[in-house]
Amino acid sequence: MTAHEIHALSGAYAVDALDDLERARFEDHLAACAECRAEVASLQDAAASFSSMTTAAPSADLRAKILADIKTVRPLPPVVARLDSRRPRRWANLVAAAAVLTVLGGGVTVWQQNHSTSQAPISAVDQIRTAADVTAVTQDLGKGAKATLYRSASLGKAALVTSHLPAAPNGKTYQLWLQNRAGHMVNAGLLDGSGNRAVVLQGDASDATAAGITVEPAGGSQTPSLPVVAVIEFEKAT
């Protein structure tokens, strides 16, 4: 589909006359096209006026039902800057969709980790990055942010290097996880700060099947909160 053709979908989009695939494609386009966003808004406004012709009051029961329902539902907070504006997906889907990295043989733990990986000396990261058997995979986190996961089998360690990582929301922190062979996510330390960061993941990475990044309350969590920011799978890569 050419650029010209995709602009022409604005009207059909405004009245929900696109099929699912076209809708997804057009929404991708909308994110990048201010002209279409403005046009869609004005056309949705026009379309909403149609409903002046079809008013029909629902039953009184419905009002009581809805007003009772809302008592048990917490309104969502406003949208604040997020890493990834896509709909939250389940961890398993993310693993399936994630980039992959070669799984390597057993190794030895060479560093005593303190709780926060952000304290790991940069030289420890470089030791992994420059190991003879290092493998690496880079994952796009959206909005220009990237993360590269390094692992050295001989060292049994993994390191994460980020670029343009946005700051975690107020009162929150990034937390890293290693997925073990049983499928459990094990805490691999916190990732403080933003932008260009380089940290060693806490724990033995030689047996892990994936690494994950989540946003957690300050101080970290025992188990990962959804949605995850990224999952980078170690297995099956070349």
């Binding site: 022409a8 979908l9 604005s10 009207g11 059909a12 405004a14 009245v15 006359a17 808004a41 004005s42 056309l43 406004d45 026009a46 379309a47 909403a48 006026s49």
Partner: peptide, 21 residues
């Protein structure tokens, strides 16, 4: 061509009833 008819129709509606301005 239906998508074009839909869009053209909506634009004329918008301009006629003066919304979205």
């Amino acid at each position: 061509t239906a998508k074009t008819r839909i869009r053209d129709g909506l634009i004329r509606m918008r301009d006629a009833i003066g919304v979205g301005q």
